[in-house]
Amino acid sequence: MPAFSFNDILLLATTLFSVGLAGVLVRRNMVFMLMSLDIMLNAAALVFVGAGARWHDATGQVMFVLILALAAVETAVGLAIILCLHAHGRPTLDADTGNLLRGWNHG
């Protein structure tokens, strides 16, 4: 008997997903937005693994591996962009200042 039923997993994943979503929407610091995105990705991955365990299918963990690859790429590129913006002399990591193409709003 598994410690969790699939319903519990769905409940937990939904909560995690909402917390991550709230983080993306609330935080203006881009580092925090990336971390919240990672929480959301983890919630999705958890559902896949839970479904895999529920129907005893390895596909769930295959999807987990792919999500892991996606998260790695997303984090690497996102952090590279943050570093790049920071090195270009942007004063803060505020995502809202990045609203202009070819340059940014220093206000």
Partner: peptide, 24 residues
């Protein structure tokens, strides 16, 4: 691990909590 997905758990620890967090 409790879901029986020990492989995924291992990856979670090594890659996520290990590699990606170090990036952060």
């Amino acid at each position: 691990v409790m879901q029986g997905a020990s492989f995924a758990a291992m990856l979670e620890v090594i890659i996520y909590a290990g590699a990606i967090m170090v990036l952060f």
